[in-house]
Design a protein around this nucleic acid. Structure first.
Lengths: 205, 205
DNA sequence: GGGTAAACGTACTGTAGGTACGTATGCGCT
DNA sequence: AGCGCATACGTACCTACAGTACGTTTACCC
């Protein structure tokens, strides 16, 4: 039985082309998340995109894939922001501060998206959290290993260290987003101090 | 309408006492998670505990509270394991290795629980992830601030640093749980190298 | 011994993810 | 030009699960 409603009738739309493409669906998902929080339903996202649920499934492929796609978006923004921040900077403490600050600022600029991605409510959040991290971690690991090799150290630690640094940023960001009295610069300085000099700070003279 | 089934009839059980208490429910939840993964339903957990859903609500208070309680359990195990590992150890690099190794080993021993807690599928995973972290972070922050003050440094970094270290461990653990060719000791050494000496490793002579 | 409160299971509701199916439209083929 | 087929989409449905209202049984206490 098909109920004829007053809404748009089903069928192929004018032009023979898709009403929305994958990117527009993701845009709609981002808007929905920003407006309604990380718990938006797929139906609300579909409504925001001007289509219905099955279209989301055709373009994206379900809740898990949607989360992955949004993770990839956020990771890409972070990587881009970081890369442009440290472009042409020599390796050193000041470059590290720039790296951290760019990361934190991008997270803050995408607050709801970050909360959705790190917390989400998919069926495999841990794997997705790792998936997000791996996107940022891969280039970082290459950089770290290269630098370690150049300075005559063991480059094998690069992979673990990259996950360590990303994880540090991830949880610190989560904590920081609930703080008010701390700027991205200030936090970046604190983290740089730990990452650059380590806990083994010699006693002050 | 009440259907009389062949199962246990409703009513107060023998003894006038509760069939299960809060801890037994949490035990059942842990078993269910270990057996069926992080996606177990409350009904499955109730079945495992030998009761029904409303009892879960009476003892715990819903999915969010269950997740929080399990987070607290895991955090407590980690903190206990860490404390007993570094008891009577002087602050230094070797104590740091013990701290990290104990943390990693406890996570590995509670693999499914860790995945549930860090990934979960509650309505506020980010906040819970932060909640879990804060339980481990609080004592660590106190230690760090104290130590910084003792050595004549700025103790204000303690809080951020504790979240940084916990976050580092959290994501690194997630990554590590999917690796096979790396022992807890080996990873602990790598992380200790980063945390103790920092990236600013002087060029080898 | 009867009333009351504790304890619990049954059965329901609401919501959200995922899917089967029917319908409208455009393109190509004859 | 007209007919068929593939494409694109909405309607309506199913299922699973979190959360809850209500009735029933049992123990305790006066």
């Amino acid at each position: 039985m098909v109920t004829v409603s007053s809404r748009r009738r089903p069928g192929r739309p004018a032009g023979g082309k898709q009403v929305v493409d994958r990117e527009l669906v993701l845009d709609a998902a981002e808007r929905s998340i920003r407006r309604d929080g990380p718990l938006v339903s797929l139906e609300a996202i579909a409504l925001e995109a001007g289509v219905t649920k099955p279209v989301i499934y055709a373009r994206i492929g379900g809740r898990t894939e949607l989360s992955n796609a949004l993770s990839a978006r956020l990771a890409d923004r972070i990587v881009q922001s970081v890369l442009s921040a440290i472009a042409d900077q020599p390796v050193g403490r000041s470059a590290l501060v720039l790296f951290l600050a760019a990361n934190l600022e991008t997270v803050a600029a995408n607050r709801e998206l970050f909360l959705y991605v790190t917390g989400g409510s998919s069926d495999d959040s841990p794997q997705r959290s790792l998936y997000l991290a791996s996107q940022s971690a891969a280039p970082l690991a290459a950089q770290l290993s290269q630098w370690r090799a150049d300075t005559g150290h063991n480059p094998a630690v690069g992979e673990a260290w990259s996950y360590a640094i990303i994880g540090m940023l991830q949880l610190t960001s989560l904590w920081w987003l609930n703080q008010v009295e701390l700027t991205a610069q200030g936090l970046a300085e604190q983290l740089a101090e730990l990452l650059w000099s380590g806990l083994r700070t010699p006693p002050v003279a």
